[in-house]
Design a protein around this nucleic acid. Sequence first.
DNA 1: ATTCGATGTAAGCAATGTCAACATAAGGTA
DNA 2: TACCTTATGTTGACATTGCTTACATCGAAT
Lengths: 216, 216
Amino acid sequence: MVKATATRPYHHGDLRQSLIDAACKHLLESGADTLSLRALAREVGVSQTAPYRHFESKSALFRAIALYGFELLLDEMSQVATEYEDDLEQSIVEIGMAYVDFARRNPEKYQLFFDSSLVDFKESDELVEASNAAFGVLTTVIQRGIDGGVFVDRPLLEVAGALWSGIHGAASLLLSKAPAIEDVHKTSPAVMVMRQLSEDPRPTIELFLNTIRKPC
Amino acid sequence: MVKATATRPYHHGDLRQSLIDAACKHLLESGADTLSLRALAREVGVSQTAPYRHFESKSALFRAIALYGFELLLDEMSQVATEYEDDLEQSIVEIGMAYVDFARRNPEKYQLFFDSSLVDFKESDELVEASNAAFGVLTTVIQRGIDGGVFVDRPLLEVAGALWSGIHGAASLLLSKAPAIEDVHKTSPAVMVMRQLSEDPRPTIELFLNTIRKPC
DNA sequence: ATTCGATGTAAGCAATGTCAACATAAGGTA
DNA sequence: TACCTTATGTTGACATTGCTTACATCGAAT
């Protein structure tokens, strides 16, 4: 057993992950523009420069969080993909649901994926590979559907683009308007659309499926 | 005629709009996280605190830019809507094109629309109204299509949500990966999808139309 | 037991957002 | 004309930030 209360040990023990966790918590509660490395250090109980032993800069921290996020996303998407691999249409819907669901459960990570002023993919090949891997789950299923004559006979890139746009758009809208949705008295069309999407994204995602269904 | 070069006049003349323009330029070139009010003031040639006579804070500046952006977007969307008002299906496609096109021509403004950590709609009713007005152009056309039996017979909110997700998603992807697209040698699926979308968004937007077409 | 690499600290610089107090211009009112 | 008010701009200052440089401490391998 370790004496934790007596005198704080010189070494933190798991500073890197603690910083990531604290950063995620802050992103979730207050947003990226108010996040400061110094404040994180304080919260975790180390000096203001200790974080620099683990992240060469603030944006490197963001990149690390995004990478972590892509790994989680890949896990969840591929799990669903294997689960439904014998029904291509259903597979698309479920992958879409998993994608949107991930974004809602990890908004702070998801937002980093697409905020180019916070995360610069050019700085990290790992990041590029991880995002490609996640996206690959979707394109693989689509390709199988096209090859098997189940989906519309259009170029993969076109179809994948449309589907990705749809599910990313739904996720992005949900996150951007999250506070407004909770305001019960707001009845503007935009908010109501979001509330509908928020309560049950499935019908919307099923509509996306029309995008790639073979015309009858 | 005003002596501009001799001694800079005490009053700038059009500081408010100059700051907005300078801010947009910076957002476009460097992103939001590096934007500083002091630097803007310097660039425009006034003291570091002069901007506070026009914007009570940095985020108030962002809100002003977003508002300006929504007004521009509304103009462009409603112009297209009237132009194609006698063909509902085509109207949807053209509004979608106008929307995506706006985002590409004004990425710095469009990004503010959806970055809740930069622009807080709760701080500005004007902003809420302006965004509702723009979104209203889309919902109006959809409602007409549903009423006229041209579009799928589903709740407006569901259909509008799906279409908005699609076009917003396409716009958002294009902006987030803009730098990668220009990298000619990148051949990852994600980048290639974006490149395809970037060269001609029309096929993708036409696919979105399937989302709401009456099943045959 | 010593050395060395990994990890953490202390002190400091330049830059930032924003506040308070003061200066200047321009226009209407006396 | 003289005055006063309001809008606009300036100076100076404070707390906070990202990040650098130089130094301290630990644990593990030799």
